[in-house]
Design a protein around this nucleic acid. Sequence first.
DNA 1: ATGGTGGACAATCCA
Length: 261
Amino acid sequence: MEKIATFNVNGIRARLAPLLAWLDGEPGIQILALQEIKAREEDFPFPFFEERGFTVSCQGEKSFNGVAIISRIPPDDLVRGLPGREHLGARFIAARFANLWILNSYVPQGRSAADPMFTEKLRFIEAIGDYIQSRHQPGDALIWLGDINVAPHDIDVYDPVKLKGQVGFHPEEQAALGEVMDKCRLYDLFRTKNPRARQFSFWDYRAPNGFKRDLGWRIDHFLVSKPVLEHCTACWIAKDLRGEDKPSDHVPVLASFSGSF
DNA sequence: ATGGTGGACAATCCA
């Protein structure tokens, strides 16, 4: 079975051991997209992935942000950085594998609705839409995945009444994301495959016992074109990584596919 | 009540 996964690792060096243990126990992963590696490219622990047969393509920076695509097969094309949004840090890398494009993004969190970074978040989401429209057709095999930092609907957060208007669950960012999905003809793969599942991919470290109480958000996504949707057999959220000694505040999201795109 | 915890890095910044 061929799998693709996305994971906000929250520090590739701090999370290396649990990440590798998880990867070794999850056969069939062809592509693993990481966000928040928090390392320069020269500080990325390449050998641990290369000795397992993976190629690492990364866009890093010191201390903050940083994204990577870890793949069984080397990419045929790479794009580092979202055009026009490079000032927001290392938050975008895209790779082509035959006719499949993977767009891996770490969308700005936004800080608060009144902060200038919230506007930057909206602009970043719009810029992804422009990028996709300028380079792709709706019939292309394309996956925009990663930490999108937006929970799309009420079912995607633990308390939609309390959280309405907070960053990550704000009507403006939900509208911006919805517009990109509409104009680029993208599907929320997890929601399409699991219409009523109330499952989360992120729990704030700062909420007391937030994970045990399941005070979660679904903000890590696979947003896919129709050809990708049609070849998907399942999309699910990993559960085991929060049991590790040093858990990330996120867990991986995975999708399995049959046939070719 | 504007906290709480965690990563990177070296005083705080970011989430």
